[in-house]
């Protein structure tokens, strides 16, 4: 009963959140990605590589335009669904929910899923030099886990242990994010590098706003719907049936 309710709540939330997020992304984030990709394409292609294995190396990708936008919308929906499921579990586990509680959880999630890993690994546009992918993914997972556990300790533990929460949140930054040998853009033209750096700064600003919007909608909607469809419906208890 909890599972079914949570799943339906998350589907509804994901529908609203992915539409809001996709609209913002479509007007203010995607143009930056597309502009950066133009620079990526303009770079000289290694001919020896393309002659040998174009068929093998080029895998399927959605066509630019409506197809690509639809796949992005689908990916946004699935991601919002996953986020809303996880947030809903946390809210319901802690007891009765409300819109305000959902919003608080949403903002905590924004801090631990976007801001904290972003401090070490800033959002990147295509074409940037970056460290090894699996190392970055590991650091990302470590940071998100430790920040969320740290925030939970800060919020729910007795006063004496709150310091431990702060230490947990600081730990991944003391370890340090994996950094590439040269950070920035490998483009040979200095003018292009200047333009790409400008795009990158815009991208960091716009993704910060877009993700805040995403978590705002997910938080409020999950909290509100959990209150309406989980708190309001008493769980089936055999004792009540016996009494009747």
């Amino acid at each position: 009963m909890y599972f079914r309710q949570l799943f339906l709540i998350s589907c509804l939330t994901a529908l609203v959140a992915s539409l809001g997020f996709s609209l913002y992304q479509w007007y203010l984030v995607n143009p930056i990605i597309f502009a950066a990709e133009l620079f990526e394409l303009a770079e000289p292609i290694d001919l020896t590589a393309t002659e040998h294995g174009l068929e093998q190396t080029e895998s399927w990708a959605p066509d630019d335009g409506i197809e690509r936008s639809l796949y992005t919308l689908l990916a946004n929906f699935l991601m919002s669904l996953a986020y809303s499921l996880l947030l809903g579990c946390a809210v319901v586990f802690r007891g009765p929910s409300s819109t305000l509680k959902g919003l608080t959880w949403g903002m905590a999630a924004y801090l631990s899923v976007f801001i904290a890993p972003g401090l070490g690994l800033a959002p990147e546009i295509p074409g940037m030099e970056a460290a090894d992918l699996s190392q970055r993914q590991n650091w990302w997972l470590l940071t998100v886990s430790l920040t969320s556990i740290g925030l939970a300790v800060l919020a729910f533990s007795p006063r004496y242990y709150k310091g431990a929460g702060l230490i947990l949140m600081l730990l991944p930054h003391l370890i340090g994010a994996p950094a590439p040998e040269i950070h920035g853009f490998s483009h040979s033209d200095p003018e292009a590098v200047a333009m790409l750096t400008g795009l990158w700064h815009q991208f960091i600003l716009q993704t910060s706003i877009a993700n805040a919007l995403l978590w705002f909608i997910i938080g409020c909607s999950t909290g509100f719907l959990c209150h309406k469809f989980i708190d309001a419906v008493p769980p089936l208890q055999p004792t009540k049936l016996n009494k009747a």
Binding site: A61, A122, E124
Partner: peptide, 11 residues
């Protein structure tokens, strides 16, 4: 490739 723009946008 399918989720490329989403992955970039949520960092």
């Amino acid at each position: 490739n399918a989720a490329h723009d989403t992955r970039h946008s949520v960092a």
